[in-house]
Design a protein around this nucleic acid. Structure first.
Lengths: 132, 132
DNA sequence: CACCATTTGTAATAATATAACAAATTGTGA
DNA sequence: TCACAATTTGTTATATTATTACAAATGGTG
């Protein structure tokens, strides 16, 4: 199993808990600050936790912001494409549940574009508040 | 007009030229290395050139890679949504010309999601070569 | 002309992410 | 059981990406 964690709770679980509670996307170093009180001292610990969570589809990285969010799916069901809108003015992130888009992307798959499971599509927008 | 550039050719033009010639996306520091021979010495010069080019739609940033590409549109026509596929294994980037997807996204716009002009959608995929 | 706004260039620094390595544990085969 | 490889963790250091801060140079405006 390798060297055991010195912490009472594994960094991966802690990371997920914090992200679940956060309404907003968090950067890796935001997370690190929060994790320090639990004894986490290094960036690699955070990045490893995130990598693992992302691999399992539990967490998404928002590349346009270098931030991370917990997937808002409740159950352990298989993940699929998720579509996020990112306001270019206030940075607010929302998940779109537009089935037509999802189906369209699925269509791409059938046409030979091997879209990855857990693909995250980030759409730059102005949110309703900022559009005004 | 502000302080004039000391260079015979403006960094912005140089940056665009280099990106146009490059088949692959380039990082800002890749560009800087290339620009040094023309007398460009600092990262801010590159980032300012890129910001300006991105604003005019001439260059796109690929957030998932922190790289930049010249838009492959030939003319000065107005830009619209562009859809890129990014291979998660070999990092190759291709531009999709799938009109259905574009139309679908336009549909989102009409439904009230103010998608930005020059929105770049990055789809994580496995390219045909790597899928095998 | 004096002043201000703007742009450029440079130096320094911030923010994001990974590499390299030692230490601790488990499993495997002799 | 013992040696040893394979893994995982934690730490330090470093690489990569991007911005801040500031001085210098120019053009426009009163």
């Amino acid at each position: 199993m390798g060297r055991p964690s010195l912490l009472p709770v594994h960094p991966k679980q802690l990371t997920l808990r914090i992200l679940k509670k956060s309404k907003k996307p968090m950067s890796a170093y935001d997370l690190l600050e929060r994790l320090r009180s639990y004894g986490v001292n290094g960036a690699p610990v955070v990045y490893r936790a995130l990598a693992s969570l992302i691999k399992s589809g539990t967490v998404h990285k928002i590349h346009a912001q270098n931030t991370f969010i917990a997937c808002n799916c409740d159950a352990d069901h298989d993940h699929d494409l998720s579509v996020l809108t990112i306001c270019q003015r206030c940075d607010r992130v929302e998940e779109l549940h537009d089935h037509k888009i999802i189906h369209q992307l699925e269509g791409l798959r059938r046409k030979g574009v091997p879209l990855m499971r857990d693909a995250v599509i980030e759409l730059p927008v102005y949110c309703q508040t900022c559009a005004a």
